[in-house]
Amino acid sequence: MANWVFHSLSRGIRTTRWPTDPETAAGVTPGRPRAGVGSAELAARCPTEALFPHDNGVGVDFGHCVHCQRCRHGDEALAWEQDFTWTSKPEQGREALPARFSRSIHVRYIDAGACGGCMGEIRLIDAPAYNMHRVGIFITATPRDADVLLVGGPVTEAMREPLRKAYEAMPEPKRVVAMGVCAINGGVFGTSFASAGGVAAEIPVDLVIPGCPPPPLAIIHALLAVTGRTEPAELVENP
């Protein structure tokens, strides 16, 4: 007979204290490049055009950064920051959900062509290390119970209709969060015969989470921003 209780209790509390306290454990995020001093050649090294040359150096469009790390190593390199509060609000994004939602939002996740990266990270917001329930986030199986639609992937041709139907089935008020660079603009898959090039091509998007993939804390940050419990960040940074 396995003594799960003893083995589990003996390990103590494994859950992060973020957002009450900062989370600085190594490896909770892939980090991201920050705008800074650099040449046009450094900007040109970026294969996804996330870096752009600027009068004062190199700027970063986080909506395109896929953490390929090509600007991180080598002769000239940008400084990378190990943060994860990346969620940003597009211009047409609706305001935060009313205060009565702030301790309990129900989320329906939709895989609209996500690779294993986003799939892996979304599964982990429920893991002991992050435990979404402690901040009032719940996953629901049906869009009819959902306040928030969290969508990963570039939106493939065959997922356009299921995505639209799921959105239409949600009760008002509702919000949509596009998770990962693919869901923002198609990412490495771009816009093509098979990919819509992001969630906004099909349904309105209220918040976007940059990252490839965004780590669990970045997802939780976004879901807190949906109810106004955290502030969204800027998507583009000039040096």
Binding site: A26, G27, V28, P30, G31, V66, H67, Q69, R72, E121
Partner: peptide
């Protein structure tokens, strides 16, 4: 995943 992020700079080993 954290070990991977710490040692190889990416939780899913991208860019290595």
């Amino acid at each position: 995943l954290r070990l991977s992020g710490e040692v190889f700079s990416h939780r899913y080993l991208f860019g290595l």
